[in-house]
């Protein structure tokens, strides 16, 4: 995944606000990149651009060789469905659907429902025994596992996670990050926005955003250790 000179600007009255400016980033398969920064620094805006949920003002987002900024709406939807998985802080599960149904939902839109695939993904994230359970009966960690399984069910090339452990207890948070480590080891590219410094420390690389711009750190690749040490 490559981002080149990405800008996302909004008009606020007579003022132009740059939520993202001059942003460049490349993420390789099997790499987990952490995006850190204060609230309003542009983390979610960046994820929305990468995830094809919003279009940039200028610049390019290239995923799996495709410039998604040039895709028409219909193709963009299909591309997002087939190549990108999303995980949200608040899980966003549908309460009346079982675990298996929540996990299989993206396949419904792809018209490629595959029960075996759903079962395999559920087993992979440790939900094999809870496939018929409703989300309301699960704890936060398990709900985030369901959200991870849902994000993975269409076998994406890129996983985007927006504060995925923000609402979890420490043990559940570590379990989620363990799953991310496994996925990364299998070649999945992960971009994770987080406030949590310890969580960021488990990423291979960390990008810090401030006012929509990427801060240049000499220690970017070793940022977690340096940052945690302070």
């Amino acid at each position: 995944m490559a981002i080149r000179n990405l800008w996302r600007s909004y008009e606020r009255g007579s003022e132009t606000v740059h939520a993202l400016a001059e942003f460049d980033l490349t993420v390789q398969p099997g790499e987990m990149v952490g995006i850190v920064g204060r609230s309003g620094s542009g983390k979610t805006t960046l994820l929305n651009q990468i995830g094809c949920l919003d279009r940039p003002t200028t610049g390019q987002v290239i995923i799996a060789g495709t410039d998604v900024t040039a895709l028409p709406e219909r193709e963009l939807v299909a591309f997002r469905r087939d190549h990108i998985g999303f995980i949200f802080q608040l899980f966003y599960l549908l309460p009346t659907l079982s675990v298996a149904e929540n996990v299989g939902m993206p396949m419904l839109f792809a018209r490629a429902h595959d029960r075996e695939r759903v079962r395999a993904i559920c087993e992979r994230v440790g939900l094999a025994d809870q496939m018929t359970a409703l989300p309301g009966s699960l704890d936060g960690g398990d709900m985030q596992r369901v959200a991870i399984a849902r994000a993975l069910v269409n076998d994406p090339a890129l996983l985007l996670a927006d504060e995925p452990t923000g609402r979890l207890e420490r043990q559940a948070r570590d379990e989620v990050l363990d799953i991310f480590d496994d996925l990364r080891a299998d070649g999945l590219a992960i971009v994770m926005a987080t406030h949590d410094l310890e969580q960021a420390a488990r990423c291979g690389r960390v990008i810090e955003l401030r006012d929509g711009r990427r801060l240049e750190h000499a220690y970017e690749d070793s940022w977690p250790k340096a940052h945690c040490a302070t």
Binding site: G51, L53, R74, V77, A78, R80, R81, F86, F88, Y92, L94, M105, P106, F109, A110, R150, A151, N154
Partner: peptide, 8 residues
């Protein structure tokens, strides 16, 4: 959420 998870 449905849109983000693949619905057109």
């Amino acid at each position: 959420v449905l849109r983000a998870t693949g619905a057109g």
